[in-house]
Design a protein around this nucleic acid. Structure first.
Lengths: 242, 242
DNA sequence: ACGCTATCTTGATATGGATCAAGGCACGTC
DNA sequence: GACGTGCCTTGATCCATATCAAGATAGCGT
């Protein structure tokens, strides 16, 4: 059962027989991991799969916050805009991440697909029902909120007090940690412009600083989006500022 | 029942007969507002009153996050430090505010009293018990976390993309809104250094920018800590950046 | 009231990162 | 394989804010 919505958003709706949640590639990393496989059907009932094309905005700042999302594959960027176009990316989301906590009645941020993206959508009321049904979800959601708050405070320190070099080192280490691999090669899903808007810098400064770090042998830039961290300890010292 | 702890922290412990929570000056503004007066005694049982002297650090970044706090009177600043002393204040807390959500196993921030401060302390386990006992608390805590996340995203935009003038205008409006009065005179509980560390600026820039806003008649600085917002619409336009 | 100290303001100068302006490179199209 | 078209890099210059350096104020204790 596939339903076409608007121009580029495809909804693959609930389906009693195919039990999607059970085989969800993001389940172990998402809030759904607290729900036993035997109750998966209720999860299926209140969730909908979406596929989003690259570059599409699927959450619009200021609109009624009626849905929550879990990223099941791909990457997204979350951002806030100023009237003159200045942009601050407040975070990147990947498989398993829960989106929508930073909202009151309306969304406090916009979200856009960084490449092809699949999502799982919950309506506000649907999630409420699930929370009542599975008290463990409450704890998991609070955990999720706590992690986001901790991350937000790190970003505030970075944006308010770190130099460009320290910001790039922090960013590269964060990306490396999120990649979940031990390999020191990190594949970046975002452009230089996105990195700049995440770190509160300009694209030129990002480019210059990355190349400076490469000249100092701290990193190697194989391709634009593929960076090797050659000296993790040195990068960590740089990132934390001494 | 008054228990003296360390040098300057006074604990006024649970007391079966005086029913403190019922008369708590912060109750209507705190998470406790969701609990009926008839159940107040359970709240008393799991909470402890503390009085903190000005300047004392009562939450230390990196220490085991064993307690949560509610500010019952006074103001506190929350901050993160870098090894060389650079500081980012991530928020200010006042009566009713809940502290401790931005924590995993350890606190992600430090907190210090801005002037005399009273707190209500909950142990992690005590709060867990209360959450089980009063499901409404879950919703209220999630609300609290959402508000903090929204606020954090606003701070990220401010720190990453706004000019000094825009930051000061945003700050003054935020303080004005928090004061809960309609009067256009705002009494600031924090020093210029704190404002600078909150806005990612230096104390000199804060001073110069405030005086520039005064010269332009947007504000009046009666005393250092007492500022009148003369032109709210203009300040709002400035704060949002056009 | 006096002086001590911390905080704030103001001025002069420096600088990290922004802005302006060309190139270079990769990738897709015809 | 030439030609676009979007990134990305590199260079030259500028400027908003930091830094350095005095003063000015305001509490506060004696």
């Amino acid at each position: 059962m596939v339903v076409q919505m608007r121009d580029s958003i495809t909804a693959i709706g609930p389906c009693g027989t195919c039990a999607q949640c059970l085989h969800c590639e993001a389940r172990s990393r998402s809030i759904c991991s607290v729900i036993d496989p035997e109750h998966m059907s209720l999860l299926d009932q209140y969730s909908h799969r979406l596929v989003i094309t690259s570059g599409k905005t699927f959450i619009q700042e200021g609109e009624a916050a009626s849905d929550f999302f879990i990223v099941t594959s791909g990457h997204a960027k979350l951002f806030a805009l100023m009237p003159d176009g200045r942009r601050q990316i407040t975070g990147f989301a990947q498989s398993g991440n829960f989106l929508g906590l930073a909202s009151g009645a309306t969304y406090a941020f916009s979200a856009e697909a960084l490449g092809p993206l699949s999502l799982c959508r919950f309506s506000r009321t649907g999630l409420s029902t699930l929370r009542r049904e599975f008290p463990k979800l409450e704890n998991r959601l609070m955990e999720e909120a706590s992690c986001e708050l901790v991350q937000a405070q790190k970003s505030m320190l970075l944006l308010g007090r770190k130099t460009a070099r320290e910001r790039l080192a922090s960013f590269l280490l964060e990306q490396h940690q999120r990649s979940l691999t031990k390999a020191r090669v990190t594949q970046l899903p975002m452009s230089r412009t996105d990195i700049a808007d995440y770190l509160g810098l300009t694209i030129e400064t990002v480019s210059r600083t990355l190349n400076a770090l490469q000249r100092e042998k701290l990193i190697s830039i194989a391709q634009v989006t593929q960076i090797t961290l050659n000296d993790l300890p040195a990068l960590e010292i740089l990132a934390r500022g001494g």
